[in-house]
Amino acid sequence: MKIHLTSIFVDDQAKAEHFYTEILGFVKKHDVPLGEQDRWLTVVSPEEPGGTELLLEPAGHPAVKPYRDALVRDGIPLAQFAVTDVRAEYERLVGLGVHFTQEPLEMGPVTTAVFDDTCGNLIQIATQPQ
């Protein structure tokens, strides 16, 4: 068994496509129309085109909003991405107008930061020792 795909809910798939590709730098892998409005929209890291796909899933279910609102209020991220330098990535993203709820924080061997993906989620970036 392996983790092939994981998903996060997004308020607006077009906005999410922009943020996850243009701002974060992922590349689109699949984009298939589903019904009238929704799409099967996935992105992958350019560093790992055959790696785990992230599905940007429409947040239409009524349970999604209260669930995400409660997590966002407490600053809890819904996904974590690995970067080689959290501080450099923080500077790059702040320059692109991204809002962080937690600035880079060194905690022993791990450095983390948390930002808002503009689609309803908080995302953590982290570096870990090799």
Binding site: G75, Q102, L105, M107, V110
Partner: peptide, 24 residues
Amino acid sequence: ERSGQTLFEICSRLSMKHGLGISR
């Protein structure tokens, strides 16, 4: 050390910096 922390950041600091395994 840093003002303006979310609950998540406070919990991270307690567990990662201080080894305190306390629930949220």
